[in-house]
Simulated scan of single mutants.
Amino acid sequence: MIKKGLFALLILMAFSASAVPTDDISQVIQEQEAAWNRGDLDGYMQGYWNNDKMRFVSGDKFRYGWESTLAAYKKNYPDKATLGTLKFTIKDIKMLSNYAAMVVGRWQLTRAKDQPHGVFTLLVEKIDDRWVITHDHTSD
């Protein structure tokens, strides 16, 4: 009887442990969306790894570093009108290990003059006990 109970507990722990990282990763993306929609680019950037090795790829550009990425966001989105309203839709989170995941999804901006949209692939890693985006490939 004890063996069956222990086995059931181990199974429950295994399923609970595997569900938590994807929930935590989804929360990072949701917090970014909320920060963007408040007009808080500094808050939006909290989802990224604050390191010079963080990589952002979009169009034909490779950008390295948290600071340079934040500066580019502030240059390209100087006010609420250009920020618009952001909506992320996560299509898939694939755990690559206990400390890394690939996130694939869509983004949509709703602005008065247009509605740009596209797709993204993120490498999200657990660093210093936090899930952060270490590589972002976003396209139209």
Rank of each mutant, 00 (worst) to 15 (best):
K53L: 12
R55T: 15
Q32F: 05
D92H: 06
G118V: 02
A101F: 05
A35T: 04
F7R: 13
A81F: 10
V132N: 06
S18Y: 11
P78Y: 10
K74G: 11
F62V: 15
L9M: 13
A8C: 11
E67H: 08
T85A: 04
M54E: 09
T22Y: 06
R106M: 12
A19I: 11
Y64H: 08
F56R: 03
H117F: 13
A14Y: 08
L86W: 06
G118N: 04
P78C: 08
E67D: 13
N98K: 14
G84F: 01
G39D: 04
S68M: 12
P21R: 08
L109K: 06
K87W: 03
R63D: 13
I127N: 11
R111C: 04
K61T: 10
A8K: 08
T138D: 02
Q32D: 04
K4A: 14
G118A: 10
D42M: 03
A35E: 01
G43C: 06
K75M: 11
D60F: 14
N76V: 03
W49H: 09
Y44E: 02
Y64R: 05
S58V: 06
S139T: 10
S58Y: 11
D128F: 07
Q27D: 14
D140T: 11
L123M: 12
V104K: 11
T121N: 10
G47W: 07
D79W: 12
Y99M: 13
W131P: 13
N50T: 06
F62T: 15
W107A: 00
K3P: 05
V104C: 14
R38C: 07
K94D: 03
K75G: 05
I90G: 00
Y64P: 10
D40T: 04
I25S: 01
Y99K: 15
L109Y: 07
S68D: 15
D52G: 01
D92Y: 00
D42K: 14
Y64T: 06
I2V: 15
M54G: 07
F56L: 11
Q46Y: 00
N98M: 06
T22Q: 12
W107R: 02
K94Y: 02
W131M: 04
V57R: 10
Q32S: 07
V28A: 03
R63M: 15
R130S: 13
G43I: 00
A17T: 12
L12E: 00
